[in-house]
Amino acid sequence: MGKTRPCNLGLSPFRTLAFALTVLTSANVRAAGTAIPHGTVELIPESPWITAGRTLNLGLHFQLEKGWHIYWVNPGDSGEPPRVKWQLPTGLTVGAMEWPAPRRLGSPSIVDFGYEDAVTLLVPLHAAANLTAQQPAQLTAEVTVLVCRELCITGKVQLSLSIPIKSQPAAPDMQTQDLFNATRKLLPQPLPQNWKFRVAEANGSFVLTANFGRQVPQATFFPLAESQIDNAAPQNVQPTSGGFRLTLRKSEQLLKPLARLKGVLVLPNEQAYLIDVPLSKPAVAKNVHGNFNAKLLLATIFLKGEL
């Protein structure tokens, strides 16, 4: 079955994709995933076997009941990202997990970053150049995942996978190609060369100025590290002729000056980009903290009241 592109039903592209993935997964002749609280998880290899000196992508595919979510690598104000403990035979190693761009989830005062419906996390499995074996390689992944709706439940499951080792590289597997291709589209991409970004600190916020050479009306920033920006603060986007200015309130927990702002920027077409921008030196004298102003104001009012 090829990936169907349903006509626009008023769903966001992400939801449409998640829906398409749901249909895709259930249509495939794969064993159902392993149960986690309010969902399933499945370890899916992109190709049916691995070859010495090459990399095979593994997908950790989560399917969640409606209303439940799991977390991104930086979970935001609460929660915890899924974690995997691997047991691998000699000659096989895993690289860093690749995370599709998340969504903002939460209420006005608490904002988390995560995934609803379905998500596939990618893990590259590297085979050593001298890898030879008659027997298929046995992989075990112990997955710990926090699944939340209004409340949170911890799940811990063991997934195993048997992968044959062959000397000829595997042809792409039609059954899994759509899932992996769709997932890769959701991964943050490196910035195009001609896009220019600047970050400066002003009035307790980081101001990210983007120049694309065209106006971009909307953007959402997801910080890769915790405790850099105030997650729940509204992200104010001001369109400019060449792009936008995005104001991100600093986190109260950020006690040391920040050298670089790293994160994922999601633009209106759901295109996600990885940004890593050094902080510009402040052009003006150090800003007085907003809170200090508020206190001054209070003192002034009280003084006046006493008169």
């Binding site: 929660g79 939460g106 209420s107 988390d112 939340c148 209004e150």
Partner: peptide, 11 residues
Amino acid sequence: GCSVKYADATY
């Protein structure tokens, strides 16, 4: 931890 379950909490 878990988000504080204020009256407006949905997550």
